[in-house]
Design a protein around this nucleic acid. Sequence first.
DNA 1: TTGAAAGCGATACCAA
DNA 2: TTGGTATCGCTTTCAA
Lengths: 334, 334
Amino acid sequence: MATISDVARAAGVSASTVSYVLSGRRPISAGTRARVEAAIAELHYHPHAGARALASSRTNVLALVAPLRVDVSVPVIMQFVTAVVTAARRFSHDVLLLTKDEGTAGLERVAGAAMVDGLIVMDVERDDIRVPALRRLKQPAVLIGLPDRPGDLTCVDLDFTATGYECVRHLAGHGHRRIGLVGPGPGVYQRGTSYATRFLSGFSDAAAELGLAVAVHACEPSFSGVGDCLRRIEAELPDLSALVVHNEEALAPLLELLRGSGRRVPEDISIVAVCPRDVALALPVRLTSADIPAHEVGTLAVEMTMGLLDGGRRPETRLLAPTIIDRDSCRTLP
Amino acid sequence: MATISDVARAAGVSASTVSYVLSGRRPISAGTRARVEAAIAELHYHPHAGARALASSRTNVLALVAPLRVDVSVPVIMQFVTAVVTAARRFSHDVLLLTKDEGTAGLERVAGAAMVDGLIVMDVERDDIRVPALRRLKQPAVLIGLPDRPGDLTCVDLDFTATGYECVRHLAGHGHRRIGLVGPGPGVYQRGTSYATRFLSGFSDAAAELGLAVAVHACEPSFSGVGDCLRRIEAELPDLSALVVHNEEALAPLLELLRGSGRRVPEDISIVAVCPRDVALALPVRLTSADIPAHEVGTLAVEMTMGLLDGGRRPETRLLAPTIIDRDSCRTLP
DNA sequence: TTGAAAGCGATACCAA
DNA sequence: TTGGTATCGCTTTCAA
């Protein structure tokens, strides 16, 4: 492999000049720049990442911690991952993928070894042990999610509290007064996953304010799990007219079960789903949904990380306002 | 951050001794080792990855190129990614995640900059332009998939030709003589994705050998797409008794459509799916399936990469024999 | 506008 | 069993 000295020699300049041509940190005459660039192309020169990291204390790599084997919707995870990788490339950064399983150790390993310039952490729990660990690192971190005590860590997420609230308001606005909530899997609540509790509290607050009757149950994302959940909800709240579904995996089985039992959507029962747009559109009924803006959140997470790195940005928490898109699964009651 | 000299000073030894304690590349007396390890723990010392890469020409990072936004089943991709990341950690390696969109440029960037020790590439096409590019790199590469001319690149995959063959044989063994194939999305065939053509050729060969009537159609993974596909297949092949489905996303809509049109599985129509075990089990009918061993393939890809790195292993192509698991969607005809 | 040279923090060879 | 030191390839300060 060609080194910077090889390029310098070929261009008839010093190594530092080549470095400055590459970084643009000082003015270079047009002629010199041209010769250096020609030499670079000629030799297929790529700066050595390790050497660069050693000399500059910058790696141009971000760590992304993703939940790679849990009860979170896989397509949603992939949307976040894709958004982060794509956005990172726009800032000339690559992405090192860590699994959530590795816990605190993974963070400390890649940060301690100076493998990354910053970290982005998904699937944050209310009392996440990784939060204090992240605070100790010298690299900036951005959480996708919102722990109970973020301290001065930067967070970005959909405002799930407002989302829960708006789902109920939307249905109430259409005349519904008895509403069931098909929640995430029980494991999600047990782990204290932040978005689940926030959504639930917004949902409950709205129901209380508006004087609606509600029933809430966690839901295993399988056919039998959805059946159980539905039975429990209906036992607790007979004659409900609408369901809010905060569980992407449950949507297809739910629609199938309803059809099997002869209930039409939305004529007999209305549904508001919380899911990304494409999931809402991929089902047999085009679902009215509160959008999970995974792409936007992932992109913002990268932009905020880069802002922290430049020193241009202060830590903050950014919660995106919900958007409810009316499609074909929500009916107005007389 | 503490450096190796800090540790050396604290332990009263030289920097090289600390390095050897860490690498185990030469014998160290018990006492010295203990003092060095104490100092390491005390100072929370982590070797600097960049410095290490520069001195040793090893990064302990693998690149993984994944199709992050195409018509390949997202859960399957995630299974590969998870398997690769998990296996890599067992070899003390981290994973840099690249998107397929970046094409050849991404490979050349991370390899040229010596950011990675090896590369694993998913979603390989028959005449993939990345294949010649990979051959030029000095780092070893492993393909998940099988291009037409792999040259001396290492490949690992399910033997899709045999899988297509066995799906037909399985059905024929149950008395079926008119079989439809619900294929992947049209884009998959158009791109010349390797596994799709291989599966199809095995499928066709078996049908020809056994004298069966077949109809084959690509399938958009949506409700309307599955409906179209099914209509086309039935127009071409009335009275078919079985379907082979090589398209994970089409499975749920297909089952729903069949039910809607009053055909029971397997009483009226048999199905053999090509998908990972958990997908086959997550649907309302437990599907007889040819397993896609994503975890095994991903793990093997990492092991083969490490073998190439040690110099212990020669380039080879490894195709895993198919396994058909009989569940509840395949009936024996009288 | 450019060059020279001092690090950055490890590894591994050569000695002892 | 251990230490000294050249070296990896780049960035950046100091000088010209």
